Simulated assay, not measured.
Amino acid sequence: MKLAAVQLKAGADRSETISRARALVDDAAAQGAHIVLLPEMFAVPFVQPEPDPDYFAHAEGLDGPSNTMAAEASRRHGITVVSSVFEASAVPGIYHNTACTYVDGERRSVYRKSHLPFSNGFPEKFYFRPGETPPEVVDTGKTRVGTVICYERHFPELSRTVALDGGSVLCVPVASASAPMKEVFQLELRAHAVFNSMFVVCANRHGIEGVKEYFGLSAVYGPNGEVLATAPDDADGLAIAEVDLAQVDEIRRRRPFLRDRRPELYGRVSGSQTAPTERS
C-alpha cells in the first residue's frame, strides 16, 4: 500500500486553504495512497507566541468545513484520511486540538491532543483543553493506524501505546516551526519508527505565519528508521511512499522489543511508583 503526508501552507482564507488541501488529497489518492495525513489544524493559521483571544474565531465543530472535506474525500476515494481541526466543543468556551480518522467516509476516531505545550512560542494551554484518552488505533481494513499530535512526539509512551494496541502505522500531524526542534525533528520520528517497529507518517505546514516560519520536512519513515519519502522543500506537496506492511510483523519478530518489555519495572514512568529513597 501507499502512505502519504500532505504538506501545506495555511492561508488567511480557510476556504482557499481547504481547496488546496482537497487537491493534494485527490492527488495522493490518484497515486494510490491508502492513508493520507493532513497537517495539524491544517485549514487555519496556527497560534502565535502571544495568547490572542481573537484566535478562537478559527474554531469549528467536528462537522465543520475542514472535516467535511476530509470525510468527503475519504468516501469518494475509498481511502483513510486523518484530519486535524481546532475543535469548538459542544460546551461553550471549551476547545480542543483534535485529530479525526475517516475510513471510507466514516469517522472512526476522535483523538484530542492530551499533551499541550506552553513553551517555545506555542501557548497551546491558553486555547485548548487537553484530551483525557490515549491514542486510539483504527482498523482501516488493510492495516491499523493510530495518531499522536505534534508536541506529543516528545512523549514516547504515546507511540508505544499505539504499537501495543497493534498499530502498524503512526500518523503525526504537526505544526512545527521551532528552530531548536528542527535539529532533532527527523531523529525523533525515526526513533519512534525503530523503537516500535512501525511506519511513521508526519505532515507539517510550511511557510511564514506571523513571526514563525514552518519548516516542512513532511515525510514517511520505515520501521528500520529509514526516510522513505519527503515532501518538496518550502512548497505545498506530498510525501508518498509505497510500503510493505509485512515488514512490521517480520521486524517485530526479529527485534522483539514489545515482547521483551518489563512493564512491572516501569512504575515511575506511569506515576504508579514513588521515587526510590536514598539507601543508608
Rank of each mutant, 00 (worst) to 15 (best):
F86L: 09
F56K: 13
H58V: 10
K9Y: 07
A21V: 05
H96Y: 12
A43R: 12
V85A: 08
S15H: 01
V36N: 00
E72N: 05
T98G: 05
V44N: 12
A29W: 12
N97G: 13
V103N: 05
H96G: 10
G61H: 11
V82D: 11
I18N: 01
M41L: 13
P92A: 03
R14Y: 01
I94C: 11
Y111K: 06
T17M: 08
E106M: 06
D104Y: 07
S89P: 08
T17R: 05
A43F: 02
D54C: 10
A73Y: 10
P65E: 09
V47F: 11
R14L: 02
A99Q: 11
A73S: 13
A90N: 14
H96I: 02
K9I: 04
G61P: 12
E16K: 09
G105I: 01
S89Y: 07
L37W: 03
P92T: 03
R107I: 14
S74V: 11
D26N: 11
K9N: 03
G93P: 12
P92H: 00
D54R: 04
A88F: 06
A21F: 03
Y95G: 06
G78M: 10
H96F: 14
G93N: 06
Y111R: 11
H34S: 14
S83T: 06
S84F: 08
P92R: 00
S89G: 15
L37C: 04
A59S: 14
Q7E: 05
A28I: 10
M41F: 13
T101I: 01
P51I: 13
R107M: 14
S83W: 02
Y95S: 02
V103G: 01
L37I: 10
L8E: 05
D26Q: 09
T17W: 04
T17H: 10
N97D: 13
L62M: 14
A33Y: 03
R76I: 09
T17Q: 01
A90T: 14
T101L: 00
V85I: 09
L38P: 03
V91S: 10
V44E: 13
V91W: 13
A33G: 08
R75L: 15
L62G: 13
F46E: 07
A71H: 02
S109N: 15
I18T: 02
A33N: 04
L38T: 00
L38D: 03
L38C: 03
G32V: 06
S109I: 11
S19F: 00
P49F: 13
A90Y: 05
K9S: 14
R22L: 06
G32T: 08
R14P: 09
D104G: 09
R22H: 08
